[in-house]
Design a protein around this nucleic acid. Structure first.
Lengths: 223, 223
DNA sequence: CCGCGCCTGACAGGAGGCTGACAAGCGCGG
DNA sequence: CCGCGCTTGTCAGCCTCCTGTCAGGCGCGG
């Protein structure tokens, strides 16, 4: 678990390093805005504690640059200037949490842990098959990274096919999974569902094995 | 949260009352030094905003008497004569913060909050998602920095969604969290709650994934 | 070339979700 | 102790979007 502490005041920096270190982080220290920006942009940190008052490059600018470059690591912002405007700016710049000085070290560590915990829960629920990817957390579907709007039923169908990839799933099994077994529906309902999905996803995603059922295509095999 | 505003100029006094009131304080007004001293000495305020130029008894003297009597409440001093010497005097007299006239009301409110927070012995903890920010200590909600009045139940709902950001939360889970699991409520109660919150927060904050649940929108993804 | 299986567009019924109104519960102040 | 306002669950109506059904057409396999 790596952490970067950006703080120009040596005493506070030392305290930060000690507290985060005791909490199990491997801590890098940095007291300069430009260096902080470089480190955060090139290294992989699990957490960054960022003071706003920095030499050479302001903390808010550093944060904005990171976010502009797509860096998503959790950032905990510290500031002595706890005015209303500062807060709004910090939030807009993409801070995940905010702590005004003075603060108790225990609280910072607690908040840092919460941030890391939250970040860990992100994005791990992604399943992919070919160009298709499902996010089980957000219940969303993306094709080649482009989000595709799907309904609840459509999503469940894709999820089931994803679960049974490299296998042809019979229509009866799909219907049974999508609805209660007791519910009797015409086979055409499934076909309509597949048709609607194919219209959204395009060809080469859901394949048909005539007489057997449906399956997810691997996409890399030339049609 | 009670506040006392000591200011003899009626227009400024009215502005103070309005701003502090909007910030969640219950405000007492007072334009007289002796009365201010009496109030501050006998009532329990969480914050006092004190103008220095007062009739009958000077603001600094009032402040000194309070401190001499062991009154520890946070005092924010206002003065038109914003010289350096004045400031030192104010701090020596026991002021916790100092604001020269003219000032922006937002800054006064921000400093007032900071004082109250500091007096409470802990820093405020902000969590943000998109344009939304929650203050876990004060149980307040702000949208793009603008405070939004929410009820306790509404706050808990937002807090739970914030805790599970980047995830669609099923209605059953939300209901279970908001009330005891044993408590059986109609699903419509949740919908009504969401509707009321959306009326306060506007669109683009609480999203719906039909058939799955609710989630906090990240501000840039239009579902 | 034939037939069956699958696909597709259109459509209507219905479920899920939204909203305004209302009333009971609750705390707070007088 | 009473009254008032705020909060919140419930209800009914409405609206949107989903989804099953139907009819017809295409195409693969024989």
């Amino acid at each position: 678990m790596r952490a970067l502490a950006v703080e120009d005041e040596p005493r506070i920096a030392a305290d930060l390093a000690a507290a985060l270190g005791a909490a199990g982080f491997r801590v890098d220290l940095c007291g300069d805005g430009e260096q902080a920006w470089f480190l955060g942009d090139t290294e992989d940190y699990d957490l960054i504690v960022l003071d706003l008052g920095l030499p050479r490059l302001d903390g808010l600018s550093v944060l904005k640059r990171w976010r502009a470059n797509g860096r998503e690591m959790p950032v905990l912002v510290l500031t002595a200037r706890g005015t209303w405007m500062e807060r709004v700016e910090g939030i807009d710049a993409g801070a995940d949490d905010y702590l005004p000085k003075p603060f108790r070290m225990e609280e910072l560590v607690a908040r840092a842990r919460a941030l890391v915990r939250r970040a860990a829960g992100r994005g791990s629920a992604l399943q992919t098959a070919g160009a298709l990817s499902l996010d089980a957390n957000r219940m969303t579907v993306a094709l080649r990274g482009v989000p595709v709007p799907v309904t609840a039923l459509e999503y469940r169908m894709l999820a089931y096919l994803m679960l049974n990839r490299d296998r042809v799933v019979p229509p009866t099994e799909l219907l049974e999974h999508l609805h209660g077994d007791d519910d009797a529906r015409e086979a055409n309902a499934l076909e309509a569902l597949v048709a609607r999905l194919r219209r959204k996803l395009g060809p080469g995603v859901i394949g048909t094995r005539r007489g057997f059922g449906y399956f997810l295509e691997s996409e890399d095999e030339p049609a």
